[in-house]
Simulated assay, not measured.
Amino acid sequence: MLSFGTSAFLKLVCLNDRPQRTAIRQRLLSSGGAYDYHRSLRLRAQRYLVRGESMTAIAASIDEIARAPERNSVRVGLERLEIWRTGYAGSILDYGSVTYESPSRLFKVAFAPDFGIQSDDSGVAVHIWNTVQPRLLPEMTYGAISLFRPLYEETDNAPDDLAVLSLREPELYRLSEAGGYADMGADLVARIESTVREVSDELDLPPDGEEHAPEPRP
C-alpha cells in the first residue's frame, strides 16, 4: 500500500496526468522514504504558533539548516506565516492525526495537523502547505481534505473544520467553505486508484503494493 503525507498527496492530486503517473511510478518503485524537505518549517511553525516563541528567536535558528534551498524555503515560509497570523487571530488548539485508506487499499494518506486554531465558534485543524510547484488547486485541496472529515467524527477531540494553510499566498482553505468541491473526494480517490492499477500493470507489480511499502513523505 502506498503511503502519503498530506502535502505529498496534495501535490499528487494537483499534478497534470503525465507528471502524476510519473510520481506514482516513482512511489511504486521506491523502497524507502525520502528526505522530509518541509519538516524544518513545520517544527518552527509549531514553535511559533503552539509554544509561543518569538519569530525573532525562531528566525535566528534558520542558519542551522544545512541546505540553502531549504533554508530559503523556511525563511520565506515563516515570513508569510507571521503575516498570516498577524491578520488571523484565534487561540491555538491541538488536534491529533487521522489516516485515510482508499477503498481498495491501494494507498493511504495521513492528515497530521500542524496546529489547530479557534475561529469564531469553530475549532479548525490546519495543515501547512509551502510547496512551490505544482500550484495548489482549491478544488483538489477541498476534495482531498474532505476524506478526513468522517475519520475525525470517530475521535474524542474532533475539530469542527479542516483546512490547508497555503503559505504561497497566504490563504486558508477551509473545508466548510468548499461548497460543491467537498463532494469531489470520492472521484479523486477513484482516479488515483485507477492510475495506481494502470502503472502497476505497466511495471508488472502487484497493484496492492505489497512488495513496495514506502514510508510517508512530506
Rank of each mutant, 00 (worst) to 15 (best):
M1H: 08
S3E: 06
S7P: 01
A8H: 04
A8S: 14
A8T: 00
F9Q: 00
F9W: 01
K11D: 12
L12I: 00
V13T: 09
C14G: 01
N16W: 02
P19K: 02
T22F: 10
T22D: 13
I24S: 02
R25C: 00
Q26N: 15
R27L: 10
L29N: 04
Y35A: 09
Y35M: 06
D36Q: 14
Y37H: 10
S40R: 04
L41T: 04
L41P: 02
R42Q: 13
R42V: 12
Q46M: 09
S54I: 07
S54D: 11
M55E: 12
T56R: 09
A57F: 03
A57W: 06
A57L: 09
A59H: 10
S61M: 03
S61T: 14
I62S: 00
I62K: 06
I62Y: 01
R67L: 15
A68M: 12
E70T: 15
R71K: 11
R71T: 01
N72S: 15
R75E: 14
E79N: 14
R80A: 07
L81H: 08
E82I: 07
I83C: 10
W84G: 08
R85S: 13
T86G: 07
T86H: 12
S91K: 14
I92M: 12
L93H: 06
G96W: 06
G96Y: 04
G96L: 05
S97D: 09
Y100T: 01
Y100Q: 02
E101T: 15
E101R: 15
S104K: 14
S104L: 14
R105E: 14
L106P: 02
L106C: 04
V109M: 03
F111R: 00
A112R: 14
A112D: 12
P113Y: 01
P113V: 06
P113K: 05
D114E: 15
G116M: 03
I117Q: 14
Q118L: 14
Q118D: 09
D120N: 13
S122A: 13
A125E: 01
W129T: 01
N130V: 02
V132M: 10
V132D: 12
P134A: 08
E139M: 13
T141S: 08
Y142W: 15
G143W: 04
G143M: 04
A144W: 00
F148K: 02
R149N: 02
Y152R: 05
E153M: 11
E154R: 15
N157D: 15
A158R: 13
A158P: 08
L162Q: 05
E169W: 13
L175C: 06
S176N: 12
E177T: 10
A178P: 04
A178Q: 05
G179K: 06
G180T: 11
M184S: 14
D187Q: 15
L188P: 01
R191M: 11
R191V: 08
E193R: 06
E193N: 07
V196C: 05
R197S: 05
E202Y: 06
L203D: 02
D204A: 12
D204F: 09
P207S: 13
P207I: 07
D208T: 07
E210T: 14
E210L: 12
E211R: 09
A213K: 11
E215A: 13
P216N: 08
P216Y: 09
P216Q: 08
P218R: 15
